[in-house]
Every structure is written in C-alpha cells, then in structure tokens.
Amino acid sequence: MRRMNLFWLLVVLAVLGLGYVRLAPSDPARWHVAPAGDADKDFQSGVLRVVETGPDGLERFDAIAIHAPRTRVLAGSVEDGMVTYVTRTKVMGFPDYTTAVQDGGTLRILARSRFGRSDLGVNKQRIDGWLGRLQAGG
C-alpha cells in the first residue's frame, strides 16, 4: 500500500511539473534583451549567431521565424529592430527563447532554453536551419 501511495505521489508531481513547464508565463522583461557579442558562440543551452545580412536581415529572419512550427512572438517587432520569439518543443512543450536584433547590416541572434542545463543542441539546430533558409533567400 505504501509503494502504491508513493507511485501516485510521483505521478502527481510529474504531471504538476509538466503543467508548470507548459503554462508558466514568459516575462518579456527577462527574455526580450538584446544579444551582445561580435562572434558566433555555442553554449550548453543555446547559441549566439552574428551574421552580416544587410539592413533587411531582421525582416527576412522574421518571415522565417513566424512560420516555424510552435513559434510565436513574445515581444518586439521588426519595426522596433528587435524581436523575441518563443518556440515550444513538440512533445513536452519546453519553451526556448530566440531574440534577434538588427544592428546596421549585422543581425545578432541569441537562442536559449528556459529549463534545464542543456538543450541537447536543439537551439543550434533550429537557428542554423533558419539562417540556412535566410542565406538561401527564404
């Protein structure tokens, strides 16, 4: 009987944890921050990409990002020169945040996870894919 109660307690805790991951609000003040850096960098839970795109890079990047599965704009706009997107993983709904800012002809993109120490390369794969499309013309 005691094992059964422990089992159900663990199930309830797992469901609550997953519910929190899916329903936790995203605070734009925390995530909508301009990326800093002058060179590409890979982190354990994200990436920074610095790309020469010309002055319309953010506009072209936005056209790709807003059509990506499970991606929506959290804050900002192309007109503001900076946009932050939230992309959720398919199964578990983990949020990843991508901020892109236009600085003259340079586009700076920071993609990072909210939960966990490692994103298992998901942000790198997504951003490099989006940039591949950007460089191919859409």
Rank of each mutant, 00 (worst) to 15 (best):
G17N: 08
M4R: 12
G17I: 07
R22A: 10
Y20H: 13
Y20C: 09
H32K: 04
R3A: 12
R30V: 14
L16R: 03
L6D: 14
W31K: 02
A24S: 11
A29S: 14
H32Q: 08
A24T: 04
F7C: 13
R2T: 15
A14P: 01
N5Q: 09
G17D: 11
L13T: 13
R22C: 08
L6P: 01
R3K: 07
R30S: 11
P28L: 09
P28F: 08
V11I: 14
P28I: 07
R2G: 15
L23A: 13
V12R: 00
V21Q: 03
V15Q: 04
R30A: 13
L23W: 10
L9H: 01
D27M: 01
L9A: 14
A29L: 11
A14L: 11
V11N: 06
L18V: 08
W31C: 01
S26R: 00
R30M: 12
L9D: 03
M4K: 08
Y20T: 13
N5A: 14
L10T: 12
R3Q: 06
A24N: 07
M4T: 14
P28H: 07
F7L: 15
R22L: 08
V21C: 04
N5P: 00
N5C: 04
R2I: 15
R3Y: 09
D27T: 02
R3D: 10
S26Q: 03
G17K: 07
V21I: 15
R30I: 13
R2D: 15
R30L: 13
R22K: 13
A24Q: 07
S26K: 00
R22N: 13
L13F: 11
L16S: 09
W8Q: 02
R22Q: 14
A29I: 05
L18W: 09
V21S: 03
F7S: 09
V21T: 07
D27E: 03
G19M: 02
A14H: 00
R2S: 15
R2L: 15
L10S: 13
A14S: 10
V21G: 05
N5L: 12
W31A: 06
V21F: 02
L23D: 02
W8L: 14
V12C: 08
L23C: 05
L10H: 02
R22I: 05
N5E: 10
A24I: 02
P25M: 02
L13Q: 07
H32D: 10
R30P: 00
L16I: 13
